[in-house]
Design a protein around this nucleic acid. Sequence first.
DNA 1: TTAATAGTGTCTATTAGACAGTATGGC
DNA 2: GCCATACTGTCTAATAGACACTATTAA
Lengths: 222, 222
Amino acid sequence: MAGQEKRPIVTVDTVLFTLRDGRLATLLQRRDKPPHAGSLALVGGYVRPEEDASTTDAAARILAQKAGLAGLFLEQLATFSGPVRDPRGWSLSVAHYALVPEAALAAAHDLDAFPVDDPPPLPFDHGAILAAALARIRNKGAWSSLPALLLPETFTLPDLKAVYEAVMDERLNDSAFRRKITELRLIEEVPDARSPATAERRRPAQLYRLARRALVAFDRVI
Amino acid sequence: MAGQEKRPIVTVDTVLFTLRDGRLATLLQRRDKPPHAGSLALVGGYVRPEEDASTTDAAARILAQKAGLAGLFLEQLATFSGPVRDPRGWSLSVAHYALVPEAALAAAHDLDAFPVDDPPPLPFDHGAILAAALARIRNKGAWSSLPALLLPETFTLPDLKAVYEAVMDERLNDSAFRRKITELRLIEEVPDARSPATAERRRPAQLYRLARRALVAFDRVI
DNA sequence: TTAATAGTGTCTATTAGACAGTATGGC
DNA sequence: GCCATACTGTCTAATAGACACTATTAA
């Protein structure tokens, strides 16, 4: 019977998305072990059959252990595999992506934010994984409440429009956006709550919250 | 150092879609080895790092070896994993789906067709994989030329409409369908070619072919 | 009062669906 | 000629985008 090398190396990697100065950003971590020690890379690690109930479970465990992140929206993206993507040998990585609202970042550690459209050079095939995750979030943004999961519990309509614009990387029509969001019953008013005015906000706005906490898919584009 | 059991078992499985009597069907194969020997199941097998360049490459190899299928549209679906899905231990299967036009079936062997919405009981988590593949093809059908890949090289507009209806499991408006298909420039006429009349076809129709052989994504729904 | 952002109303262009109606070929 | 199916034209309803307009609040 042949040894371990008959089975691929199995890892998971997660693309972390967050907002930075109103722009979509990705969070990277400096690797402390070879291969590619010292490089900025996606947060990833080995799947441990003895503790993980699934690869998504493994991704969640690794996010908690290596970056202090928990409770995120986390979803499988795709699986990347081949003989050359990792110098340790034929490897397979189940890529995931996760959305990190500001509140989750407070407890996090060892992460650096970079604009999604101008990341540093990445080791392995992490550049391709990031590109695939970006394509997924942009497409899903048009069709679901996904971008709203980057916001805090309560938010204003201008906030919500801005995060859809940041995710999808295009300008939206204001009145059409309000019309669609309200018709879809995606959000509900927080009674008697208005946002404070800030440097960018000359005038308070009505606060809303998601009508459902989970990801909701729409039957038409936002 | 621990042995092989520290790495998951890595397999691929492919959901095969085809047309049967104008309805969307899936092709299953009787397993000749344990576990679940004798059961009808998806076509699948081990990834072989020494010969496969990727998991999709492994899926193509296994389709050729076990079913005589080659040259199909074959795409990764998602990865299914966990400790209990396979009695051999913690396992991971990269699920794919493929489209089998009638011509490819001619050379195929050891496959049985079943209606997609009424398959036999399936072993492992193959039922869940089939359901996920069906959801994917239905969704993608509305947004791309994917259903056309189930047809022969040339086909009529009524044929094309029927395959979209079979894939998406809904009736389409005839004139709207023709309008969209032609505006999208998905297809081109085959000059001076008309389909023969058949039992179901009282009147010959113009033959078309795909303007591009590959999968084309549209920016709006069919 | 002013400036800037929040929010509303309405017009128009686009497009999907319904469906009537014409064309064509086998019998 | 009859009938079924292929194909076309047109009306209408739904909806997205443009954009003018009003409302509100901090300074």
